[in-house]
């Protein structure tokens, strides 16, 4: 087991959610759920993060932002789409400004459904992500002889 799985730092970004999932993500940090028990911190800075937690669907203006943040997260990294909007666009799927789920823009590793996703399922999703994180780490090391691994893009 690598240290990665014991200290996943998350970055939360609200793509275009209704806030429901966002406050549940935040609620995970607070005394009742206290994810810091698992070493999970909400860093707020992509450059320090391992897990990118996105809520809400992609719209015109945040498309570039999500891409930019994703690029600024150092490898290995995992994307967790929280809530049905992030997964597929949800109730807003038909809105003129919504492109759909986060996977339209960046590769998503874990989908956490729910409207709003409950803190329990968010934590569950993050724990799922840890496994993937470790896999990516292993893959990043392997082809070290050749070119550098590029991490998440291939998933």
């Amino acid at each position: 087991m690598t240290y990665l799985t014991r200290s996943p730092w998350i970055l939360h970004y609200d793509a275009s959610s209704c806030n429901g999932c966002d406050i549940e993500v935040l609620a995970c940090l607070t005394p009742l759920y206290d994810v810091e028990r698992f070493g999970i911190l909400n860093t707020g800075n992509p450059k320090h993060s391992d897990i990118f937690v996105v809520t809400g669907g992609v719209n015109e203006q945040n498309r570039e932002v999500i891409k930019n943040i994703y690029e600024q997260i150092p490898d290995p990294k995992v994307v967790v789409a929280v809530g049905i909007c992030a997964t597929s666009g949800g109730v807003f799927r038909e809105c003129y400004n919504i492109m759909g789920g986060i996977d339209r823009i960046i590769p998503v590793d874990v989908y956490v459904p729910g409207c709003a996703a409950r803190p329990e399922s968010i934590i569950d999703g993050i724990v799922k992500a840890l496994g993937i994180l470790e896999e990516k780490r292993a893959r990043m090391r392997q082809p070290d002889t050749g070119k550098k691994a590029t991490g998440g893009e291939t998933v």
Partner: peptide, 22 residues
């Protein structure tokens, strides 16, 4: 404008009792 979804237009897709969800 980062989370503008345009949900007001959904009145044209949802019947008025359903629109409560939106």
């Amino acid at each position: 404008g980062y989370i503008h979804r345009g949900l007001e237009t959904l009145v044209t897709k949802r019947e008025f009792p359903e629109y409560v969800y939106i």
